[in-house]
C-alpha cells in the first residue's frame, strides 16, 4: 500500500471542534453516530435523546441514517461517522443515491486511520477518495472539507441545502479523551423513540 504515513497528523481541522460546530445549529435534527471516536465526538458536543450513538454495527451507520430519514422525511438526519466505518459500508452510499432522501446529510471524519484499534492506516491514507466515491455513487452534493473556511461553508450547507449531502472532512489523526454515551442499546432506542414519537411509542 502506498501511504504518506503521517500527513493526517498535520491536518488543521480537529474533530471535536468540527463536530461541535456542525451540531451547534442542529435544531431538531436527528443524529446517528458511527462506532468509536465519532460517537465520542458527538457525545462531547452534548448527549441528546435524539442522538443514536452506535457501539458496534460497523458499516451500518449510513444505512441506519437512511432508514431514519425515509421514516421522518420532515426532519433533518445527520450521520457522523469515521472513514473506517464508512469504508465497511461503501455500498450504502449507492443505496442512499437510489433513494435520494432530501433530508439526509453524511459527515465522514476522515483521519485516515482506524483510531479505535490503534491508529492503523485506512485506505484513505493512500489513494482512496471518499468524496469522489460518494459523488460517483450518485450523491450529487458532495463537499471536501479541509480548512476552517471550508468548515464555515459546510455549516451553512448543512442547514440550508437539500440532500442527500456528503461531507468528507479531513481531520487530524489524534487520540482524544473518551466521552462515552450511554451504551445500553435497548435503552438508547427507547430514549430516542420517546423523545421523537412520544410515550405511546415505547409503551404500546
Amino acid at each position: 500500500m502506498s501511504v504518506e504515513s503521517s500527513r493526517s497528523e498535520q491536518y488543521p481541522l480537529r474533530r471535536r471542534e468540527v463536530v461541535g460546530r456542525l451540531l451547534a445549529d442542529r435544531g431538531d435534527a436527528l443524529v446517528v453516530a458511527g462506532l468509536g471516536a465519532p460517537a465520542w465526538d458527538v457525545t462531547a458536543a452534548g448527549d441528546d435523546p435524539l442522538n443514536f450513538p452506535l457501539w458496534g454495527a460497523m458499516g451500518g451507520a449510513v444505512s441506519m441514517g437512511l432508514g431514519l430519514a425515509l421514516a421522518q422525511p420532515r426532519r433533518r438526519v445527520i450521520v457522523i461517522t469515521g472513514d473506517g466505518e464508512m469504508l465497511m459500508g461503501l455500498g450504502s452510499l449507492a443505496t442512499v443515491a437510489a433513494c435520494q432522501p432530501s433530508n439526509l446529510a453524511i459527515v465522514v471524519l476522515d483521519n485516515e486511520r482506524y483510531g479505535e484499534t490503534g491508529m492503523q492506516h485506512t485506505h484513505t491514507a493512500g489513494d482512496t477518495d471518499l468524496v469522489a466515491i460518494a459523488g460517483a455513487a450518485g450523491i450529487s452534493r458532495v463537499h471536501r472539507v479541509l480548512t476552517g473556511e471550508h468548515l464555515n461553508d459546510a455549516c451553512v450547507h448543512l442547514v440550508q441545502d437539500t440532500g442527500p449531502m456528503f461531507f468528507g472532512v479531513k481531520v487530524r489523526a489524534e487520540a482524544l479523551p473518551l466521552v462515552l454515551p450511554p451504551k445500553d442499546g435497548a435503552w438508547l432506542k427507547d430514549r430516542f423513540r420517546l423523545a421523537l414519537l412520544g410515550e405511546s411509542s415505547v409503551n404500546g
Partner: peptide
C-alpha cells in the same frame, strides 16, 4: 438490518 432499525427509530 441497519436501515430498518433506523426506520423503527423514526416510527416506520
Amino acid at each position: 438490518i441497519a436501515l430498518l432499525s433506523g426506520a423503527w427509530l423514526g416510527g416506520a
